[in-house]
Design a protein around this nucleic acid. Sequence first.
DNA 1: CCCGCTACTCACCGATTGGTGACAGCGGGG
DNA 2: CCCCGCTGTCACCAATCGGTGAGTAGCGGG
Lengths: 219, 219
Amino acid sequence: MLNEGVSLESSPGTEAAPERRVRDRGATERAILTAAKGLLAEEGFQNFGINAVARRAGCDKQLIYRYYGGLDGLVEAIGADLGTWVRDRIPEDAGGMFLLTYGDLMERLALLLLDALKNDPLMRRILAWEISENTEQVRRLSEARSKALALWLDRMRGSLAPPKGVDSAAVNAVVIAAIQHLVLAGAAGGQCAGLSLKTSKDWEKAATALKRLVRGVYG
Amino acid sequence: MLNEGVSLESSPGTEAAPERRVRDRGATERAILTAAKGLLAEEGFQNFGINAVARRAGCDKQLIYRYYGGLDGLVEAIGADLGTWVRDRIPEDAGGMFLLTYGDLMERLALLLLDALKNDPLMRRILAWEISENTEQVRRLSEARSKALALWLDRMRGSLAPPKGVDSAAVNAVVIAAIQHLVLAGAAGGQCAGLSLKTSKDWEKAATALKRLVRGVYG
DNA sequence: CCCGCTACTCACCGATTGGTGACAGCGGGG
DNA sequence: CCCCGCTGTCACCAATCGGTGAGTAGCGGG
């Protein structure tokens, strides 16, 4: 069924040349990494394997072994690539933050994180992967992800100190847990605990509830 | 390597008889269902398949097709079996609830749910499955699970009305999302958003934060 | 006692998986 | 010039997957 990609064009010079692969290792490596990220983002970790990545990248799986040392190395490369996540999502309006209270800040961060995750299928898949498996593979990826998240939160927070008397680390973790689960459940099944998560109106309700919870603690 | 289970004991009467299978359809069906639940709870949905279940149940996979109509039917049977979840976890001390405020109640429910999920690997795996896949299979299972959860919450709530002015459905969904994600992340990686979730002390911190959030909204 | 129904097992199928060794083709340095 | 190394392709491996058809073994009713 897919023999057209292997034919050695017996009638050369025509317009529909089979796109002879140029010998460019860098480009191939990039193609593999892009294919891997796209595959993971679109299909999830379930069918994420050497064969599938090679098929999507349009090259032989042998090259994945050669260039990345197998799936593990490729996953690690994805993790390393996650470092750009922080850079890409800093709104740069940190100047308007200096008069916020900690409650204002956390509310803002919660909503920003909610939106960021809603629009980032790759991050969602990695998040789901973390929760479903505990192999060395996913553990390293998870570390890269959480490091990126922590860095992002840190950059966004600036120098604002949390209020005393509350375990803000724990509270924030719980809030982040809620956000992550809402996004995952919404993307997967369109609802969570009876709350529909499909339309933007649904998400507004969830966001409002989230704000209420944050405000209830931080004022 | 596992030929000892098929040998037709040439020296009968000895104590180590190879456990000749009795012809009992009901018992076999039960064995299959138990094997399926145990396998899902212990190994997760990743390696959950016909062959694995049959291997664990100690019977031929053909019987799974015959008795349950394949994996789908078996999964559905697991879902049906989830109805007992509610019955098994109602503490029956509902009598002491009549003087609680809605905030007291939700705090209590949150902590109970947290504990219940922490000690129920099967429910956790199903939860993770829901989030990672969206096939018909998992959708039905998910429905059974959420129905059981909703019923449980309903039974526990009793006739206490939520306060006006807040979208309690949305708030509760967010709280439940947080609980579920905390438990999943804790079971999988031992932490969530930088908060360690290993020792009981860790979990106390998370529970306290959870209480704070609920109290902040419901007073 | 035997026969038939039913519970059960085995052998096989094609497809796909992760993984490896051998080979082809181009290009640059001796 | 030729040869070596690098890039890319192909063929093959054992293992496992879900799925099916045919056959065996035991129990109960005639």
